[in-house]
Amino acid sequence: MLDLSVIILTYNEEIHIRRCLENVNQFAAKVFVVDCFSTDRTAQIARELGAEVIEHEWPGNQAEQFNWALDHLPIRTEWVLRLDADEYLLPELVDELQNKLPSLPKDVNGIIFNRRHIFMEKWMKRGIYPVKLLRVFRFGKGMCEQRLMDEHIQLTEGCAVEFEYDFCDHNLNDLSWFCHKHVNYAIREAVDLLDIELDLTGAAEADENKNISQQALAKRRKKHKYVRQPLFWRSFAYFCYRYFLKGACLDGKVGFIWTFLQGWWYRTLVDAKVFEIKKACGNDKGKMKQYLLDKYDITL
């Protein structure tokens, strides 16, 4: 087994947790499942498969929950892998991890994987693939950046290397669940865009100093440009970019559904939320912060 612990955050993930744990049990010395008092069989299945289950109330976002886990779990391995319950490593990546991890230089404190999305049982090969994410880091050398959306693992020191092979984001829920999830995401993404535009938190310009993947930094720079584009037009343009220029149109009907829902419908919903908030508050930052607290229980 590798000198590596896996941390998985869960809430009602019985549909995914067995697949995830059977995957990581192939190579991980220790697996921690940080559960938010699931009402299904998530915790029971996790314990049956040898994971240590810790119940902890949801603090409001992924970053706080993951950083709480880093601070409070009895992690004794050199390396940590962050994984979601609906994710798993492909066999080629498992082999690569086993072959390369023990011999990495001491100045390498992070490993970047390629994430592929499996949607409606089809690999979305075009549009946004590959998404490069820093998911493995030396314990004590990384943490999750504090963001409402699109949070990444950032290194506190050292550098990261990229591995060749993929892990999968493969959610087994239906389209209704997928759409509902994005409705919930939309307000947080809207706040993220408003923060970039109006500097609600004073942290909008700090991204360049973060030790995250270069792809993540490039995405943040593009988001800063995206914010300056007209509402609603930008969501349509983003869809066209992914569907036509990035080739998602070649992924058939499923590729259209994926790109339309995630690249246009969701982005239009985000813009509608931005429009709604500005309609109520204008560009008054103080009023906007109070509005977000009162209506959505979001504290900035």
Rank of each mutant, 00 (worst) to 15 (best):
V6N: 04
L21Y: 00
G263Q: 04
F236P: 05
L293N: 03
L89N: 04
D40Q: 08
L97S: 10
R76D: 08
R116N: 05
L4C: 05
L97P: 11
L21I: 13
R147Y: 08
N184G: 13
L89D: 01
E64N: 02
R19V: 03
I112N: 04
R147A: 10
I298K: 09
D107E: 15
L200C: 10
W264Y: 12
E157N: 08
K100Q: 14
D271G: 04
T299D: 09
D150W: 05
F275R: 11
L231F: 08
C249K: 14
Y241S: 10
F32D: 07
I112R: 02
D271K: 05
T77W: 06
R47H: 00
A218Y: 06
Q62M: 08
N23C: 14
F137C: 09
W79Y: 15
V136M: 02
Y129L: 00
N209M: 03
L293E: 10
W233I: 13
Q262E: 13
A206L: 14
V191I: 15
F256H: 05
K106M: 05
I75V: 12
E96M: 06
I75G: 05
K287M: 14
E157S: 12
K210F: 03
Y296F: 15
I7E: 03
I15K: 12
L101D: 06
L293H: 11
V31N: 08
G158Q: 00
K122C: 01
L250W: 12
Y11E: 12
E197S: 14
D86Q: 01
S103K: 13
E48T: 11
A63C: 10
D251E: 07
T299N: 09
V183L: 11
N211R: 14
N61D: 11
L231W: 09
R47G: 03
W258A: 12
G286E: 15
F239N: 13
R41C: 07
G142Q: 02
W264R: 13
A46Q: 00
I153D: 03
R138N: 05
D86I: 00
R126W: 00
F167K: 04
C144E: 05
L134C: 14
Y226E: 02
S103Y: 11
Q62E: 09
R41F: 06
S5M: 05
P91R: 01
E87T: 07
M149T: 14
E14R: 11
T77I: 09
M143A: 09
W68Y: 15
H117R: 14
I17Y: 00
L93Q: 12
K279H: 11
D35E: 06
K141Y: 12
F244P: 04
N67C: 09
L269N: 01
I54Q: 09
R147T: 12
E14V: 03
W123S: 02
P130E: 01
D284L: 07
T299S: 09
S176C: 02
E157H: 06
L4V: 08
K100G: 00
L90N: 01
D40L: 12
M288Q: 10
R115L: 13
W265E: 05
A85E: 01
Y11Q: 15
G158T: 00
M124Y: 03
